[in-house]
Design a protein around this nucleic acid. Structure first.
Lengths: 238, 238
DNA sequence: ATCGCAAAGTTGGGGCTCCAGCAGTCATCG
DNA sequence: CGATGACTGCTGGAGCCCCAACTTTGCGAT
């Protein structure tokens, strides 16, 4: 099934890989339609489609009359990236509203991204992340274990910062009732793919594309609560 | 400049209008590529492109072998739609952190959308909205005036609900330092248009597309802070 | 009356081509 | 020597066509 994928996806994935692993640095020119046509032995339609998808993802930018280029400042993209893979336990914030006092402990350690997380976070495998294990407690009794992965340069530096970060997440009242399997992808899936079919009963909240920039504090959160599974996508700046 | 726009936009805008004003109700079939080609006297490329854009916006859904249809449950789309057009005053939440006590009063009234808001909220002009005027005070002194427009069916029903809604907004620490000119558009601009150019120094956070569904509580917020102007986009369910 | 099947219609992927408008580059002219 | 203008390459819009896979429909046979 992997080899019979649409042709344009092959091009998209190859270029995306080159961008994320640094082969194509920010500002680097992307081959033009004509060049892609030759290089990947595809039609111009597929080549142009691939470029549009990548541009839609925010990875590259097209300049009329000039060409496509790898977007500058891609480091702004992953402000915070979280990934929780947890016990199906009630989330702490849930219990706060029931009057219990929630506390949490954690310990952080450096970790390599590894293939799975690297792919999901669109990072090179060698990227150094900060892995943090949490133990959430309600009235002292353990409620939930959680693991989060953050880019080192964006991870909180002090105890206080991390505490405030987690507190802000709690302020959202995120309930985690089952597997929380998530990544905050700022540059999610290809533009045209997988239009959601609400009528079919798929329950999902889905942020397709988010672009941003700016040197001021920015905070966004997107919470997805499908039927029986859900994801939390969360990002915060310092 | 309006008449020399791309042709596919003419198709997009016409269909979008028909959907938002109810001419094409949820579930209604959209003309096929061939039919659009004839109806609007455009090429197949433009017709298909228009359909893709609308599908990308989440307004319609394409089913292979069957056709495109107006998405069901479009009422889930505008959960809350806010629009503030305000004084360039510091936002109350800002002052909270400085230890001042922030309070606010409001009064709500029904209002017709009118041409401007109808266009921005993608609603029929005759839609009945709830218009709410706020006065925010810091330590009793007026700080800010704000006006918000909400779909009536999603407006808070009780005093307590509205108070909690505003409080939740404050919890985000949204600073409003200048004109807040905004609409929460769940279905923003066409898929392929206006990729942001970060390199050019445009400072903007921009949520392009958000789709969601589900019968459980969903909360999303998107805060945009460009250089010297900014928008707040906010939506919350009950 | 119901079942099965074929034909027609539709989407999505893909190919090819043309053109306007823009951006560099380079050569020519004053 | 500097400025202007022509040329080339690129993007984005647009047209037309073909095909595979899938749905729907309607007809014909049982």
């Amino acid at each position: 099934m992997a080899t019979s994928d649409p042709v344009y996806l092959r091009v998209v994935e190859d270029i995306r890989r080159q961008i994320t692993d640094g082969t194509l640095p920010p500002g680097a020119p992307i081959p033009s339609r004509a060049q892609l046509t030759r290089k990947y032995q595809v039609g111009e339609t597929a080549a142009r489609h691939a470029l549009r998808v990548l541009a839609g993802e925010g990875l590259i930018i097209g300049r009329v009359g000039s060409g496509h280029y790898v977007r500058e400042r891609p480091d702004l993209t992953p402000l915070y990236r979280w990934r929780f893979l947890d016990h199906p336990a009630p989330f702490a914030a849930d219990l706060q509203s029931q009057g219990r006092r929630v506390t949490w402990d954690w310990h952080s350690e450096p970790a390599e991204a590894g293939p799975d997380i690297a792919r999901r976070l669109r990072l090179p495998q060698s990227a150094t992340l900060t892995r943090t294990h949490y133990v959430f407690r309600g009235d002292g009794r353990p409620l939930q274990l959680a693991t989060s992965y953050e880019l080192r340069e964006f991870a909180p530096h002090t105890e206080e910062e991390r505490r405030s970060l987690v507190a802000r997440m709690y302020a959202h009242g995120i309930k985690i009732t089952e597997v929380v399997e998530s990544v905050h992808t700022r540059i999610p899936r290809p533009v045209e793919s997988d239009a959601l079919d609400l009528a079919a009963g798929v329950h999902v909240l889905h942020v397709e594309r988010t672009h941003w920039a700016g040197d001021r504090p920015v905070e966004t959160s997107d919470i997805v609560i499908p039927g029986d599974r859900f994801r939390v996508m969360y990002s915060m700046p310092l």
